[in-house]
Simulated scan of single mutants.
Amino acid sequence: MNDSRIWMYDRLENGYMRNEFFNGVEEFVNFAKIHPEVMSCEMMHCPCNRQKCKNRAYHDEDTVKEHLCRYGFVPNYYRWHHHGETYIAPEVEHCVNPSSLSQVEHVYDIHEMVNDLYNSVSIGDEPQSPNETAKNLYDMLMAAETEIWKGNSNGHSQLSVVARLLNMKADHRISERCYDDICQLISELLPGENCMTESFYSTKKLIRGLGLPIDKIDCCNNNCMIYWRDDSELQECRFCTHPRFKPSSYRGVKKKKVPWKRMYYFPLTPRLQRLNASIETAKHMRWHEDHIQDGDTMCYPADSPAWKHFDATHPDFAAGFEM
């Protein structure tokens, strides 16, 4: 990371824009303007964190400034390769096409990310079969360290490739069938000895090692209830008696029952564990406790009398966030 560009992600102070950020935006725009080869006439890539931009859309310089001040920079854009700044990955001697470097910097952080996620896993010296958590760790480390094919100039691993593909799938709403076809095409383009995943199903099996589960919960078609806990075995709604599953046209053949409606629940506990597992994100989890209040100005709910009263009334609960 370029230490001189820390200002890019330090935009606000007490709700107001920092002078360093505003001056940095001016410096960035001036830098982009002297590289017309990556511009479209008077338009340049907008690197703001707005969903429709993120270095994909072109805007004039005034709009780019406005977007950056409003939305901030897209994460980890310390190297301005979309705006004319060249970048050669460390320890790579091959000539790399700059247009393919938008995610190269993330490749070298994959191994550290996996170690952060499982930094609490300890493995004893005695030979024993690994538990499920340790087994997932081994699988993720192997995927993180294994090159997608030996000798690739960007150093991509299996994990870095599927992480980028999943991000593209979410950004562009790619269907699972299209994702499978993309994986198949990439596998055909790579040398014979490659470890590219062949489908969305195999990708999910790999990413499952991150330990961020999703609970699928059947719902009443009329939104009366969810089939959860004590009601998980019911076959019809307790309120409107609407059947839980769609009727099957295959008589005498056992088929998987399909619910009329289903919701997806993201359990909070493992996600909080992941946020506290990484050194970089854990410090932000304590911000509400460690931030400095500007006089009597309330800039966060923790500054309110109600929050402080709750902390004083329930010290055990408040102490849990200070660990």
Rank of each mutant, 00 (worst) to 15 (best):
K52P: 03
K52R: 10
C53Q: 02
C53Y: 03
C53A: 08
K54S: 09
K54P: 08
N55L: 11
N55Q: 02
N55H: 10
R56M: 14
R56N: 13
R56Q: 12
R56P: 05
R56G: 00
A57S: 03
A57K: 13
Y58R: 11
H59A: 12
H59I: 07
D60R: 02
E61S: 15
E61V: 10
D62G: 06
D62H: 12
D62C: 10
D62P: 10
V64D: 02
E66K: 11
E66F: 09
E66V: 00
H67V: 01
H67C: 01
L68M: 01
L68G: 04
L68T: 10
C69R: 07
Y71T: 06
Y71E: 13
G72H: 08
F73A: 04
V74K: 14
V74P: 01
P75E: 12
N76H: 15
N76C: 11
N76G: 10
Y77N: 11
R79P: 06
R79H: 15
W80R: 12
W80H: 03
H81K: 15
H82L: 03
H82Y: 05
G84I: 02
E85A: 02
E85Q: 12
E85T: 04
T86N: 05
Y87H: 07
Y87T: 05
P90D: 05
E91Q: 07
E91F: 04
E91W: 08
V92M: 07
H94P: 08
C95H: 10
V96L: 15
V96Q: 14
P98D: 09
S99V: 07
S99K: 12
L101V: 09
L101Y: 09
L101R: 07
Q103P: 01
Q103H: 08
Q103D: 11
V104N: 10
V104R: 13
E105I: 14
E105M: 13
E105V: 15
V107T: 14
V107N: 14
V107I: 11
Y108S: 15
Y108A: 14
D109T: 12
I110T: 03
I110H: 01
I110N: 01
E112N: 06
E112K: 14
V114M: 02
V114K: 01
N115R: 12
L117Q: 04
L117R: 06
Y118V: 13
Y118E: 05
N119Q: 11
S120G: 02
S120N: 06
S122F: 01
S122W: 00
I123H: 04
I123F: 01
G124V: 04
G124W: 00
D125I: 02
E126C: 06
E126F: 06
E126N: 09
E126V: 07
P127L: 08
P127T: 07
Q128G: 11
Q128T: 07
S129W: 01
S129R: 12
N131Q: 05
N131S: 08
N131C: 04
E132P: 01
A134R: 04
A134T: 13
A134C: 13
